[in-house]
Design a protein around this nucleic acid. Structure first.
Lengths: 230, 230
DNA sequence: GACAATTGCGTAAATATAACGCAATTTGTT
DNA sequence: AACAAATTGCGTTATATTTACGCAATTGTC
């Protein structure tokens, strides 16, 4: 037995931070999972995450663990719920502060520490370790809510994208279909898109306009209070 | 020194659950605070809350502490954020799972254990203990968001209420003014209100219609996905 | 070359929102 | 008692917004 040198008058739970990382490949939404190498749930897939240190916040912990386990650095993680069921970890009492983040698939390269990290399409996600199935459901709901009010979707696309790509993303997340022309109009009217390149005058209808997310205008609009409704 | 009998290989933070309790007196939104009797922050006001036991979830802890400290039982608390700043408690590392709930003022009677519990109007709240000022700001934001999508406001009113009372509540929470007639139409069109009494045929214009929240219709509507927008 | 698919740009109809009128009554004032 | 101010119920109208499509110019496919 190893030393048990941190002692308290009352029992304390362990605290972890986990990360639900969403990506988008142009067709469907994906989540990043790692395969557990140790018990419990050895061999099962789970979200990147781990124990919080005493000198870091939950968010810092989530980012550190994410980097350590997948090589993904400085993701814009956001806390969404704390899971505290008494028996969610068979070893001991562990509560976890769950986070989520949206990343471009290109940002995470294989290799690295991330030998066991893999993207799964939402409908291919296997049964997960611990209560991570529940965590995933809640993360997906939060993502759906959030994308209607903030243009977080842009974090999932390449810097430059077409309107069709943007629509595909929204349709994938919200699991609905939009009329192409109405979607087009609505997004343009919001004013948070800029044309990426001046569109070659040689026109050609079929070559789609490339857009880029305009963060300045977004900040402007947000203060006035706007909604990205669908 | 007391015994330190719970020992771990790695340091563990303490975990608490706190409750931001909102009430409404017909004019303004209030929060329930308790005055601290011990250090740190002795004499300062803070949210009800306390240390989590090993056999209860964060939510159960929040409810138990709320009952113990204010006599308020079975409030429908809902978790909204976990605060984990490293130095938020001067004694030791403490992370807190913050909850909020809406209660009818009538539900909480003075006396009890709650000698030191008091309602404060939002603009009378003093500087709070720990990082509770920040917690309050976030709770208020969450309340504003939420009331636009779910009729949680009804939890703050008596069972039977007039349209004017309902409007006052919305205006107090959102800090805006609505046109009385438009508010009236919008709420009625939602279909989640029922007339409480068949309105005495003796009419009399000035006596307002009493309504009651219709939970059945609400559940119905929620599945179709609706929005209480303003 | 025929044909389906994609893109840009509109337009008309259906809905929803916002602004406000008005009469019946009750409350408050003097 | 007389009168002004406030409250409630029930409308209406003007203005936006949302939704449902039309259509032509390409481009890619077979």
């Amino acid at each position: 037995m190893s030393e048990q040198k941190f002692c308290y008058k009352y029992p304390h739970p362990s605290v972890t931070a986990d990360c639900v990382i969403f990506g988008f490949d142009g067709v469907s939404i994906k989540v990043l999972l790692i395969q557990r190498g140790i018990e419990p749930f050895k061999g099962k897939w789970a979200f990147p995450g781990g124990f919080m240190k005493m000198d870091e916040t939950a968010e810092e912990c989530a980012k550190r663990e994410l980097d350590e386990e997948t090589g993904l650095k400085n993701a814009a993680v956001e806390q969404f719920y704390t899971f505290s069921d008494v028996s969610r970890d068979p070893r001991e009492r562990v509560i976890t502060v769950a986070h989520y983040a949206l990343v471009r698939l290109s940002e995470i390269k294989g290799g690295d520490d991330a030998a066991s990290a893999r993207w799964f399409a939402m409908d291919e996600v296997p049964g997960l370790a611990f209560d991570h199935d529940r965590i995933l459901r809640m993360a997906v709901n939060r993502l759906k809510e959030r994308i209607c009010f903030e243009p977080i979707g842009f974090e999932l696309l390449p810097e430059v994208f077409t309107m069709t790509e943007l629509q595909n993303l929204y349709e994938a997340i919200l699991e609905v279909k939009f009329d192409r022309r109405n979607f087009y109009n609505k997004m343009l009217k919001l004013g948070i898109l800029s044309e990426a390149e001046p569109r070659p005058s040689g026109a050609s209808r079929r070559t789609p306009t490339k857009y880029r997310f305009n963060a300045e205008k977004y900040t402007e609009m947000k203060q006035k209070g706007f909604r990205l409704e669908f």
